[in-house]
Simulated assay, not measured.
Amino acid sequence: MKRSVFQLIVFLCICLLPTIAEAQQDVSLTFRFVTKNTKEGYDHVSKLIVYSDDEQIGESTEKLQSKPNSVTVKTPKGKHKIKAILYALYNGTWEPRTIANEYSFDFEYSKTGNWEVNNTISLTFDIEQTMVHIKEKVPVVADDED
């Protein structure tokens, strides 16, 4: 009986080891975001799209921009350029909220750094102040590439 239990434990460890090792090589990034000072009639349906090294790794649900929202993504540990861009549904088309698209400022977060631990990043897109307020639970040292 003891031998059977031992064999079962060894078998489970061998089966679960790749999953455990893979999970330890990723970090979770949670983005919490909201848009402040939205003018009446301009509360667009929005979503945040997150990229790692210019590859999309996730997107939030769609909500009015004035409603708090969040998205959690995984990226491998190590040096990466993480970018999160707020998109608005405008005339039936999703477009990034950037100066290039005639918005008052770029509604985005971008940082290249060494991502080693799970992190929560809070973004407040403030239309009145035309800026993004950023709060990181674990500060990430940015590289000079941005």
Score class of each variant (00 low, 15 high):
K2L: 15
R3I: 15
F6H: 10
F6N: 12
L8I: 15
V10E: 14
F11R: 13
C13V: 09
L17I: 06
T19Y: 07
A21Q: 09
A23Q: 15
Q24A: 13
Q24N: 13
Q24T: 07
D26Y: 15
D26T: 15
D26P: 14
V27S: 13
T30E: 09
F33Q: 12
T35H: 11
G41K: 00
Y42P: 00
V45S: 11
L48Q: 07
V50D: 06
V50H: 05
V50K: 06
Y51M: 02
D53I: 02
D53Y: 02
E55M: 03
Q56A: 09
I57N: 02
S60R: 06
S60G: 06
S60T: 12
E62Y: 07
K63C: 09
Q65R: 14
N69Q: 07
S70Q: 09
T72L: 04
K74T: 13
T75E: 02
P76G: 03
P76I: 00
K77F: 03
K83I: 04
I85F: 09
L86G: 05
N91A: 08
N91P: 08
T93H: 04
E95R: 15
P96D: 15
I99G: 11
N101P: 08
F105T: 06
D106Y: 12
F107E: 12
F107S: 12
E108Q: 13
S110P: 01
T112K: 04
G113Y: 03
G113P: 00
V117W: 14
V117M: 15
N119G: 00
N119M: 00
N119S: 02
T120V: 08
S122D: 12
F125V: 08
F125G: 09
D126F: 03
Q129I: 04
H133Q: 01
H133Y: 02
I134Q: 09
I134F: 10
V138C: 06
D143C: 10
D144N: 04
E145K: 03
E145P: 00
